[in-house]
Amino acid sequence: MSDMGVIVKTNARALIPLIGIFGCYIVLHGHLTPGGGFQGGATIVGTGLLFLIAFGVDEAKKRINKDLYSALEGVGGLVFLGVAMLGLSVAFFYNVLWHKGPLFNGKPGTLLSAGFLPIMNLGVGLKVFTGLVSAVFALSLFRRWKG
């Protein structure tokens, strides 16, 4: 597979960290500003797409481990489910961290507030990022044009 020219590659080197950091910012501030797990995760996927397009499929094949990504997607889901189960003694999805918990019960508007929401955002962000990257990568590897 051919890849892009030197200008695109250089720009991609500069942009991938910026997109990634911005995506992480959206995920982490999901409970404070617009956006959240899905939006942030989809933004971080932009880094994966840019990497795939700028550096080509062969380079991506060396760096993207299918088992790791699919396991991480499972981990994202399990984090979400596990946090939802924390307050199971009261009810499923009971926000025990906010009501009693040791963490994430700061003043509303600060980063460490909102109970389990930031953790759920992280879980969803991880799941969306790994899921979409694996989907696009699998499509880019799909056999060939002609049968």
């Binding site: 499972g74 889901g77 399990l78 189960m85 499923f92």
Partner: peptide, 16 residues
């Protein structure tokens, strides 16, 4: 709730 939690746990942990 376990009727949702158990299959969901099974599906999410399947890749691992």
């Amino acid at each position: 709730p376990f009727i949702i939690i158990i299959p969901l746990f099974g599906a999410f942990s399947m890749p691992i």
